[in-house]
Simulated assay, not measured.
Amino acid sequence: MKYCILTAGLAVAACSIAQPALAATGNVTFNGTVAAICTLVVTNGSGTMTVSPDLQSLSSHNAGGVAGTITATTTGNVAISIGAPTAITVPPADVTPITWAPTYSVAGAHTVAETGASSNLSTPGVDTVTVHLTGTKTGSDIFAAGNYSATVTVTCQ
């Protein structure tokens, strides 16, 4: 009888060793969202305005003037725009009205001709945004001697 019990115990042990473990699997699903974004990096934040020969235009477009530049990197589906100049300073001797007109153009992944209006950048890419500022006088008014400055803000959203 001892022999029968021992044999039955070995048979149970042999069966538990011989069976392979059951395999288990699981899936992991990944999702991601990239929002429509635009980053701006100022590459030349010091534009220069020069006066025209008739002293009625002070502009980065005039001979010797220098535009400001910004690098825009976007995922697409954003709008780029330019704001009215702020922090305007004029010399005390200049007392007649000045009309300020900021403009910009875009070159690179997108092409936007010089404008002052908002523009859509529908596809991803990297662009150079060239920013100009012009101040004008009308009639017989002219720019007075002294330092002029203004800040133009470019927005991409």
Rank of each mutant, 00 (worst) to 15 (best):
M49Y: 02
F30L: 15
A36H: 10
T123I: 13
T134K: 14
L121V: 14
F30A: 15
T75Y: 03
G26V: 15
S140M: 08
S105A: 13
S52V: 09
T50C: 03
Q56V: 01
C15T: 08
A87T: 15
H110Q: 07
N62I: 11
A107C: 00
C38H: 06
T136P: 02
A13N: 03
A35P: 03
T50H: 00
L22I: 10
T71L: 08
L55V: 09
P97G: 14
T48P: 01
D141S: 15
V34G: 08
G45T: 01
V129D: 01
G26C: 05
V106D: 13
V66Y: 05
N44P: 02
S119P: 00
V34I: 15
S81P: 05
T48K: 14
T130A: 06
T73G: 01
I98D: 04
L40A: 07
A79D: 09
G45A: 06
L55S: 13
A101K: 14
A109C: 09
G116Y: 07
G32Y: 09
A14P: 02
G116F: 08
T123V: 13
A79M: 09
A23D: 02
A107Q: 06
I17E: 01
I80G: 00
A72K: 05
Y104E: 08
A101W: 03
D127A: 13
T136M: 02
S140T: 15
T103A: 15
A87I: 12
A13G: 07
A23T: 05
T43L: 02
T134R: 12
N62M: 10
W100F: 06
T50N: 07
G83Y: 03
A18V: 11
D127I: 11
N44R: 10
T128R: 10
A93D: 04
S57L: 07
D54W: 13
S105P: 06
T43H: 01
S122C: 01
A13Q: 04
H110V: 12
G64P: 05
Y104P: 04
S57G: 03
H61I: 09
G65D: 04
A101Q: 12
G116N: 15
